[in-house]
Amino acid sequence: MSWGNPQTSREKLLYGLISPLSLGYGIGSYFRLAAYSKGYMKRVRLPVPVISIGNITCGGTGKTPMAIDITRRLIAAGYKVAVLSRGYARKSKEKITVVSNGQGEFALCEEAGDEPLLIALSVPEAIVIVGSSRAETAAIAIEEYKADAIVLDDGFQHIRLERDLDVVLVDYNDDPENDMLLPAGRLREPLSALNRARVVVITKVPAHPDNERLEKLRAQIRNHAERAEIAEARFVPKRLRTNNGAAPLEQLKGQRVVAFCGVARPEGFAATLNQLGCTVVHLKSFSDHHWYTPDELKMLEKLMRESNASAVVTTEKDMVKIAPHDRLNQHLISVEIGVEWLGPLPSHISEMMKGKLESELKRGKQDSDSATSPGGESTKDDGSAGKSGSRKKKHKPK
């Protein structure tokens, strides 16, 4: 069954039975948003720029690779970035966990959650914090770690925290006009919620897209988000990761492999493996954010041996959950995914980066001008005061 698009008589019957629940879900969403817009529920404004990466459907649009891409770009522009995530499906009951302090110290996957840890490992210079209250985690990021930019991972529905830029992802393969709200469909909010977005990115655009389909999707977005900038992107394999480090994509070509994943849309992973030219003899799909048991890992290793496969291949998100000492790890390969923008970077993002670069250049010139007095004598001290003043309190991941 395509979630929200029933095909068989049984699926249509089930769809009809749970559709009234979608109405209740929609009413609840409306009143929640109205409470914030009318001021009955207070929003929090941060003293630093905030970018939210989100969607209006349940999973699978590519929020994590997009958050990684934008975080890297902001860091390259000079920002000290903190990524805030809810840490969905993590095992820890801690209210707040510092996944990465931006200095190479990382929390365990059970404490962090798979996606936050993947972001932390992919961008080790970023501060990554998980917790249900983004306002609280933002305060830690700014006050303790001196972050000067915040990226909200899956933050579109987190209305309480105000943001300067809402980036919303829409899957090229979706037909949102014919979908329904949860639980009958995949929509987390009505399509009218897109009017809050400043940038809408159509993701997973294939190499040879159906132009009619693409234009129809653009029109649907414009119908609900008149002021939004519409961009397009696809996710492409960049390299492989093994227990011994990085490896070229060509290593998988012609190989027989066993594959597994616990993601929202496993068909995308299957298509990537096909693109890499390997023969998938078995593909095991698990639920999104699945935590693998020892028996499941043994089963995968057994499948590899019995099918005469050369490796077990999985996603980056799944690989972070496999302990380094597990036997499966010596045969395990993950595929690193990156963002390929189909056209210029959205202007709202590039302008934010440009503004920071210009600010840093201006500050550097001012520092240079003030370093020497009119008489030519340096006004700098021996550096000891600067070293003392630059010490920061370390908040190690738990």
Rank of each mutant, 00 (worst) to 15 (best):
A34K: 15
K63S: 05
Y172C: 10
I127H: 10
K38C: 13
A89E: 11
G78D: 06
K146H: 14
I75L: 09
V83C: 07
V81A: 06
A120G: 06
I68E: 10
F156S: 03
A67L: 13
V168D: 00
E136G: 02
I56S: 10
R86P: 12
D69P: 09
V48N: 01
L165G: 11
I129R: 01
P47S: 12
I56W: 03
R90M: 05
N55I: 06
E105K: 06
K93N: 14
G62N: 06
G28D: 06
P47I: 02
T57M: 06
A135N: 07
I142Q: 03
L46N: 01
Q157D: 10
G39L: 07
Y30E: 05
I127C: 12
V83D: 06
E115A: 09
S52G: 04
G54P: 00
S122T: 01
M41Q: 14
T64I: 07
E115D: 04
V151H: 13
L118F: 08
Y36K: 07
E125Q: 15
I150L: 02
A107L: 05
L108G: 14
A139I: 04
V48W: 04
G28C: 09
C109I: 04
F156Y: 15
L152K: 07
A112W: 03
A126Q: 02
L117V: 04
S37M: 10
T57A: 15
I140F: 00
L33Y: 09
A76S: 14
R90N: 00
F106R: 08
S132L: 10
K91N: 01
R86F: 04
R90Y: 03
S29W: 00
S100T: 08
G102E: 09
K93Q: 14
A112V: 11
G78M: 10
D69V: 07
D164Q: 10
Y145M: 15
L108D: 15
P116N: 03
Q103M: 14
N101C: 14
L117N: 04
L117Y: 09
K146F: 01
V99N: 05
I140Y: 09
E94W: 02
P116K: 04
F156T: 11
L108Q: 14
A139F: 13
D166Y: 14
A120W: 05
S132F: 06
A149M: 11
K80Y: 05
A67S: 15
V48Q: 13
R90P: 07
G39M: 11
S133C: 09
D154V: 01
A67G: 03
A120D: 04
E125F: 06
L108C: 05
K93P: 08
E125Y: 08
G28S: 12
V123C: 15
Y30G: 11
K146A: 13
I53W: 10
I51D: 05
G102V: 03
E144N: 13
E115S: 02
F156W: 04
T64R: 12
Y145P: 00
A82W: 02
R134N: 09
V168Q: 08
A139P: 00
T57V: 15
M66V: 13
R86Y: 05
K93G: 14
E111Y: 06
I119G: 00
V48T: 03
G39Q: 11
D154Q: 11
F31E: 10
R45K: 15
Y40F: 15
G113T: 00
V98G: 07
V151E: 14
I75P: 13
I70C: 09
D154F: 01
R72E: 15
G78H: 09
L46R: 07
Y88A: 01
L46Y: 08
F106A: 04
V81S: 08
V170C: 09
G60W: 09
G78L: 03
N101A: 11
